[in-house]
């Protein structure tokens, strides 16, 4: 069940936060943050916009479509994929088992 770190993220994959992580809006930081045991990762700007759409139900393609609808005129596909692959390599997210 554990995938090797650095796997490519497929657009049809459903992704979710890893169990230990919790995402929340943090007023004191003025951005979304990812909390985990004894630590916090700040997710300013687009990184927070991407992470908050990870709900354990949506496919990567749906997340991209939603972002492009919210921020029209930009081709975000590759940026989102790159970010998700980095997030995956960091262990923040996982692809759900099929």
């Amino acid at each position: 069940m554990s995938e090797s770190v650095g796997d490519a993220i497929a657009e049809e994959a459903v992704i979710e936060l890893h169990k230990q992580f919790r995402l929340q809006w943090e007023q004191a930081q003025d951005c979304f943050v990812l909390l985990y045991p004894e630590g916090m990762i700040k997710l300013p700007g687009s990184s927070g916009e991407i992470m908050k759409r990870i709900d354990g139900k949506s496919r990567v393609s749906e997340i991209i479509a939603d972002l492009e609808a919210t921020f029209p005129g930009a081709d975000l596909r590759q940026d989102v994929i790159d970010f998700l692959e980095a997030a995956h390599a960091n262990g923040w997210i996982r692809q759900q088992d099929h």
Partner: peptide
């Protein structure tokens, strides 16, 4: 309220 996020 001061921004603490981790509690032990």
């Amino acid at each position: 309220e001061l921004g603490a996020v981790q509690l032990g």
